[in-house]
């Protein structure tokens, strides 16, 4: 599978997001510069964490207007895989590829720590996990408080679009303990935790690795 890692000014998890698919999973990957509309034939786009455009106005609001995002939206609409991690999740909600919005943490503080999440393994991004498996992932964000209206929440729940839920402790006030969701078709995933930061034993664990292995396994 060929991965494309988008680089916005202010992205800071792009190298990690490149490292895991290539060095850990043995796949091909390229960087996609935000001014470049060409997706270079990738199968899976990664919108990495960071502070795209300095988080000006709202996190992800300026990034959604960039040339690369117009192509990413087309790619997603035609069924291509897109994963947004942390700031990438914020870009996905701002772009309308995922419903809802990520508001400021209720604690009003930046939270950087390990948390537990419960996995729904019925998505293309989580098929290598067990049903209801609880895993440990790192989070590092100031705006991870997921919010959507009630109708949207019911739709997310009944369609099985909630891929990850905080387990035990809800760190940021997110509605229904939501840590990550997919779109209706399942080809787009957004999540606040960082699976790319916990995909090798040398870095403290491999609980995030199966997100990448799951999506790679869908390629025939």
């Amino acid at each position: 599978m060929k991965f494309g890692i988008v680089v916005f000014p202010g992205s800071n998890c792009d190298r990690d997001s490149f490292h895991v698919p290539t060095k850990v999973c043995g796949q091909e990957a390229v960087y996609l510069w935000h001014k470049d509309a060409d997706l270079k034939g990738v199968d899976c786009v990664i919108l990495p964490g960071g502070f795209s455009y300095g988080d000006y106005l709202r996190c992800g609001a300026i990034a959604k207007q960039s040339p690369v995002m117009k192509s990413v939206i087309e790619h997603a609409k035609s069924g291509g895989y897109v994963i947004g991690i942390c700031n990438g999740f914020q870009v996905l909600t701002e772009s309308g590829l995922l419903p809802g919005v990520l508001m400021r943490n209720t604690s009003l503080t930046f939270i950087c720590k390990y948390i537990q999440v419960k996995v729904n393994n019925k998505t293309p991004w989580t098929n290598k996990y067990d049903a209801g498996e609880v895993i440990t992932l790192p989070i590092a964000h100031n705006e991870g408080n997921y919010f959507c209206d009630e109708v949207t929440l019911r739709r997310l729940e009944s369609n099985g679009q909630i891929a990850f839920k905080y387990h035990g402790e809800n760190p940021n006030g997110a509605l229904a303990d939501i840590a990550g969701i997919t779109n209706e078709k399942g080809n787009v995933l957004g999540l606040m935790p960082h699976p790319e930061r916990i995909s090798e034993l040398i870095l403290g664990g491999t609980d995030g690795l199966r997100v990448f292995e799951s999506i790679i396994s869908t390629k025939k």
């Binding site: 106005l57 609001a61 701002e94 809802g100 919010f147 959507c148």
Partner: peptide
């Protein structure tokens, strides 16, 4: 389109 996120 930009200045407000009308979801919230």
């Amino acid at each position: 389109k930009l200045l407000a996120n009308t979801v919230i």
